[in-house]
Design a binder for these strands. Structure first.
Length: 753
DNA sequence: ATAGGGTTAG
């Protein structure tokens, strides 16, 4: 009668559903249960009610089969209510068997809408959503009309794919059958559209509803939370309060979850008050949500109080506490709770790994990851992002590569976050080609993807490619943000493209409405200063709309070092020390400059101030990864187990290089010592130790990758160039700001750094 | 005879 859009094609049902045949298994009958059945039929021989109440208490398929066989023997099965209830058990009970249900269902000549509804519900329960839809279509074909229950059952538990595939069409059916004003159906539709990501359609249905059922509101909150639109949840909750709809525990959980994300303690507390005022019985989920909200807002005392009074705690409760501390940068406190939890899942492990990342304790993050693997907890996409970040910071390419293989082999969800982290990891480990490969294989790219690639190309010395990438990004209609522009300016700086830099700096405001911040001014000062325009760089600083910070002055100081301008350096250093009196590296840099300018009196004076103030040079530290293990060296290090071999190799290296024309460059050594001692001070620099270690422990032709915490010194730069030539090795050194790719005697930075 | 909405990490 109703012209329904039945475009969903229906294959013969025997192809999809099990072949019908009713077989009752022979099994041992529990004597107690048998007695219960006898009693049930004896006590009321003419009624089937006792059997039905027995069905209500039925716990397993075994028991059900006994009831079933009993009903056949007694002839009760001919009563449709008994049949229906047996089917309903299989469809709704957590241990119910849908194959069994179907065999019975298939024997019924004209199943009622109740039975159809249950079959639909059953297939959704066991996640066979397509079978549920097919059942529904079958029902229509056999001229049975859906009722109020049909659509909630049908739509419930859809996966996203199924919802996208069938959602709209089923919505049409709802309207045509006239159930669009049923609040249960509306709620089901809202949930279904939220699942598809069609939050606006969901909101439309919500707006059409009478809005006096709390579940309708909850469904919307849930949808907004799922879409990470937490502010919408907050706004809608305020509207619900105005309307006087009373919240339930579910409402409170959803609102608290949004407040945790928004770090909105006020609304969070208000939600908390409803628990007492509305006499909502606190359950585990609600208590977890409360703990998490307070922890996320930094209120660890309150969080711990709730946590402490909980009767039951699960891994989510512990995770809330751990992440609370992690967010406050208190990794050690987080670890205390982490260690106390006996049953840790991958979320808790990842949260703790993330805790170390937040405070730049990357090696501990990797150590914990190894423990996680030993505990046989599988990493997921969140974990691999954290580990890739640690690899990026440590320059641990081998482990990073291993993670990539792991992702592919174990089918870890390869989402945009993972792609971005892979690009970052490859770039920060100096392997731009592999980063580009990941980039080109990514089906979706966001501004972070492009920015990672632009910054990555820039720090690896591919300025032109970085700028080309930037114009491609604009062509792809992705809006750059302030970080993208840092990458763009950085590309200009590292390749000395002064004019381009000026152009992009101007363009960020005019084209994209991004006001330059301190970082951008720092880039400009760097760009102009390094290119020798020191005065212009100073002008830029003087004309900044905000107070110049130590990064900006630091950029000028760095330029003064390159161009050996001691006077301007003194001024820049003074400015930095006013902002940041304990900045040891400023003193060191100024020492370098005095030494390079042969201003020994100034140098001695400064050294005295440093001694008086107890200012020490940040020890230079180099890391090299070998067979998945990160080895660390400080200058003059003798703690490595292979120290003897390393220093022997270093001697050999020095004499090899000297015969290839190496002359130590001691110009930047500011220690007040003889020339010979200066040479030996240089000789023990951490990156040289790491290079020697790398030469010993890797085969011919293998690239040596080193990460250094400070800038490379002039002498080490020279040595690395010669090593690349004399030993025919590619040497890649990542220093504090950029990469040096040494190949065949020259460096990618073209000695411009 | 059968209904709906929930917590944790990049």
């Amino acid at each position: 009668m109703l012209p329904l859009p039945l475009s969903l094609s229906l294959p013969p049902k025997t192809h999809i559903l099990p072949t019908p045949c009713l077989v009752l298994s022979n099994h041992t009958v529990s004597s107690i249960f048998n007695k219960m059945i006898s009693l049930a039929s004896i006590s009321s021989p003419t009624q089937d009610i006792p059997l039905l109440s027995l069905l209500e208490t039925c716990k397993s398929m075994d028991q059900l089969k006994q009831i079933h066989s009993h009903s056949i023997k007694t002839g009760l099965l001919t009563n449709p209510i008994v049949q229906n209830r047996i089917i309903a058990f299989c469809c709704t009970h957590e241990k119910g068997d849908m194959k069994y249900a179907y065999r019975m269902f298939d024997k019924i000549p004209q199943p009622s809408v109740f039975v159809w509804n249950n079959m639909i519900k059953g297939y959704n329960r066991i996640d066979c959503h397509r079978n549920g839809v097919l059942m529904y279509l079958d029902m229509l074909k056999s001229d049975v009309k859906p009722d109020n229950y049909t659509f909630p059952f049908l739509l419930k538990g859809f996966t996203r794919d199924v919802a996208v595939e069938f959602g709209k069409e089923l919505h049409c059916h709802v309207v045509k059958f006239g159930f669009d004003s049923s609040v249960f159906v509306q709620n089901a539709l809202i949930s279904m559209y939220c699942l598809c990501g069609e939050i606006d359609v969901a909101r439309g249905i919500f707006e059409m509803s009478c809005k006096d059922d709390v579940v309708t509101w909850n469904a919307m909150f849930s949808g907004y939370n799922r879409m990470k639109q937490y502010d919408e949840t907050r706004k809608l909750f305020a509207e619900m309060e105005r309307k006087g709809v009373l919240p339930t525990a579910v409402t409170i959980v959803l609102v608290l979850s949004a407040c945790a994300k928004l770090k909105d303690l006020d609304v969070g507390k208000r939600a908390h008050r409803y628990v007492k005022e509305c006499k909502i019985e606190p359950n585990l989920i609600l208590e977890n949500a409360l703990t998490d909200m307070y922890a996320a807002c930094g209120e660890m005392d309150v969080a711990l109080e709730i946590f402490g009074t909980m009767n039951n705690r699960d891994v989510i409760s512990w995770t809330a506490i751990v992440t609370g501390y992690v967010n406050r940068g208190q990794a050690d406190l987080a670890r205390e709770y982490f260690d106390q939890m006996p049953e840790r899942d991958y979320v808790l492990w990842t949260a703790m790994i993330d805790g170390y990342l937040r405070v730049n304790r990357f090696k501990e993050a990797l150590t914990l990851f190894r423990e996680m693997q030993t505990s046989n907890i599988k990493p997921d996409e969140f974990t691999v992002v954290s580990i890739l970040t640690a690899c990026a910071n440590l320059g641990a390419l081998e482990l990073g590569e291993w993670i990539k293989t792991y992702i592919e082999k174990h089918k870890v969800k390869n989402d945009i976050f993972v792609g971005n982290a892979l690009i970052d990891m490859y770039c920060k480990c100096g392997d731009v080609e592999k980063a580009q490969r990941v980039f080109s294989e990514m089906p979706r790219k966001d501004k972070f993807t492009w920015t990672a690639m632009i910054v990555g190309l820039a720090i690896n010395g591919h300025g032109e490619k970085a700028l080309d990438m930037f114009s491609q990004m604009l062509k792809a209609s992705i809006r750059p943000d302030e970080v993208t522009y840092v990458g763009v300016l950085c590309a200009c700086t590292h390749t000395g493209m002064v004019e381009e830099g000026r152009k992009y700096f101007a363009g960020m405001t005019t084209h994209h409405g991004i006001e330059p911040n301190e970082a951008h001014y720092g880039c400009m000062v760097d760009l102009l200063g390094r290119a020798g325009h020191l005065k212009e760089a100073l002008e830029v600083i003087k004309n900044m709309p905000m107070k110049p910070n130590s990064i900006v002055w630091g950029a000028l100081l760095g330029a003064c070092r390159v161009h050996r301008d001691a006077e301007m350096a003194e001024m820049a250093a003074k400015e930095i020390l006013e902002l940041d009196p304990d900045n040891g590296s400023v003193y060191v840099l100024l020492c370098n400059i005095y030494a390079a300018c042969n201003r020994w009196d100034n140098l001695r004076e400064l050294r005295k101030i440093m001694l008086d103030k107890g200012i020490k040079k940040t020890p230079g530290c180099s890391m090299i990864e070998m067979n998945g293990i990160v080895h660390e060296f400080v200058a003059g290090d003798q703690s490595h187990p292979e120290t003897k071999e390393i220093y022997l190799k270093l001697d050999e290296m020095t004499s090899d290089l000297k015969s290839a024309g190496y002359m130590p460059d001691t110009s930047e050594v500011f220690l007040d010592i003889g020339e010979e001692d200066k040479e030996s001070a240089l000789y023990r620099h951490s990156e040289k130790l790491a290079m020697a270690f790398g030469l010993i422990n890797s085969g011919p032709g293998v690239t040596i990758r080193i990460v250094k915490n400070l800038r490379m010194c002039v002498d080490c730069h020279r040595v690395a160039k010669l090593v690349s030539k004399v030993y025919d090795r590619e040497v890649i050194v990542r220093d504090k700001t950029r990469f040096h790719h040494f190949r065949n005697g020259s460096c990618s930075c073209k000695d411009y750094w």
